[in-house]
Design a protein around this nucleic acid. Structure first.
Lengths: 297, 297
DNA sequence: CGCTGTTACGCATCCCGTAAGGATA
DNA sequence: TATCCTTACGGGATGCGTAACAGCG
């Protein structure tokens, strides 16, 4: 099970085509075919159906491992190089939208204080991209949000250190003219029939809500893949569907927020960093966590 | 960064010798030398000092990643093979000592109920061994204990699914004639000057206590590497040192238990399992967790 | 000198690319 | 027939082992 075999296997599975994967990886179709054959022979089982190219159950299982393994290999390399290389002249800071908005200003203040004159780049991206980028050394620090049971960690495929920065309650965002908009609190089980907006990057991902409510009844007719929270809120205000958001978000007109009472969930923010940035990251995490404590009581 | 290069790197680092690692892996010394050279050239930095053979800082960092990567590769293979292979005719159940004693009987009852007539093997081993064995498919199920902040997960390098089974308070075990033995509760910070027994497999590991108390003052003059709890308690009764244990443990004469009030820590037990055993594991986890709830209030 | 790691060199293997073959729509 | 994956085959690179060499006690 060589690493590059896993890499091409992932590429083939993602592309759904040997030839497309070959083009993407710079191989010939023949080489890709041979590599997949080698992997299947090594494991003694078929991993892909052909025509169409779809993973077998065994292939699905391997896919679950392959991504994290390859990520960790990149993380290992990045980590070793960080030990050897000089400290970076600038800091690249990745954050998911719902993590960035409450924390970016404070993080910048702390970074300016601890490393005067240093150049900082903020990049807002999706959860997987931030986790991957921090592991691979492209970002020095990352802030990732998500929902979880109270005190549970986020389920990230992260390979550096993760530090909890903030836990805060959740709210359901709904149009102000929605019949439930004036409720004092709400139970997600009462909203199983509602229409949800599937906005995995700027709201609680629906799969997480399904897991938390232990049902797959939560359904959506509108998917929003962007990273701009205001756009999502405009959709909510226009009645296209509901979304679960952190309570601290300041909402524009037309959108009401009702605290989620059950199931017990929190919006959690975690700071990720590679090993070498550890001292700076520790104080940064402390500052952010302290701010989180104060703002959420 | 090929997987087998990592494997030989780990072996060399563990053996502290190229030739010993070569013997262990079935290579010649020359091959090992070439492999390490290839890895170092690939990463562009030295990983090992020679004579004596000791990891460089970069090598230390790589070592932190290499173990989990190799484990995960084994886990991936085991997982794929489980999908393909037939369901096992017998179940191998691994557990750490402090996880086994309260749960083994109940787990056996549940396994007998869910799979009548099935043959079950219980193996008591260290934390790393159980986590590794479950990932590699040698054990079908594993119970691992450890200490953690309340609701925090254990820090294991596990690659299957982990489910919390029990959280319970901690006690300090001390001889009945110890001056603090009649206290109603105790703060670990008051015991920094005490003498501790370093028994990582049958008591709270001292490094965890140091991390929790945020000091490295906790020191030990006696190490116990076995997996028999009673032997440790005999050492405690004889005044050789203190140990932190789960509160539910029934203590023999000569040993007193004082609840730990601060820092806030719990003794946590988690069930590990590979993917394929999921249905059985889920109900087993539920049964164990239910029992834990009842026994600890 | 004895031990251990490195370097040189030859050989087997592996792996990719080219090109031909076969299966499916 | 067109597309896509597989197979056959050749050449280059890789990687191991043998053996000679070099540093350290």
């Amino acid at each position: 099970m060589d690493a590059h075999l896993l890499r091409t296997f992932v590429a083939v599975a993602e592309c759904g085509s040997f030839s497309a994967a070959a083009a993407e990886l710079g191989y010939t179709q023949s080489a890709v075919s041979q590599q997949i054959a080698a992997l299947e022979s090594n494991l003694g089982t078929a991993l892909l159906h052909r025509r169409p190219v779809v993973p077998t159950p065994a292939g699905e299982r391997l896919l679950e491992h392959a991504g994290p393994i390859l990520l960790r290999l990149d993380a290992a390399r990045a980590d070793v190089l960080r030990v050897v290389g000089e400290p970076p002249g600038s800091i690249v800071f990745g954050a998911t939208p719902l993590a960035a908005s409450p924390h970016v200003a404070r993080a910048l203040t702390e970074l300016r204080r601890s490393r005067p004159g240093i150049e900082v780049t903020f990049a807002v991206a999706g959860r997987e991209e931030v986790a991957r980028g921090v592991a691979a050394g492209e970002y020095h620090l990352g802030l990732v949000d998500g929902i979880a049971a109270p005190s549970d960690p986020l389920k990230l495929t992260a390979h550096g250190t993760t530090t909890a920065v903030q836990n805060e309650p959740l709210v359901v965002a709904l149009p102000t003219d929605h019949p439930l908009a004036r409720r004092r609190r709400i139970n997600l089980h009462d909203l199983l029939d509602a229409r949800w907006i599937d906005a995995p990057e700027v709201a609680a991902p629906l799969p997480d809500l399904r897991a938390a409510t232990e049902t797959d009844a939560i359904r959506s007719t509108l998917t929003y893949t962007g990273t701009d929270v205001l756009s999502l809120l405009a959709l909510v205000a226009a009645g296209h569907g509901l979304a679960v958001l952190p309570a601290s978000l300041t909402l524009p007109g037309g959108v009401a927020a009702v605290p989620v009472e059950s199931p017990r969930l929190v919006h959690r923010t975690e700071l990720l960093h590679g090993h070498v940035d550890e001292p700076a990251a520790t104080t940064l995490a402390a500052v952010l966590a302290d701010a989180g404590e104060r703002s959420t009581g």
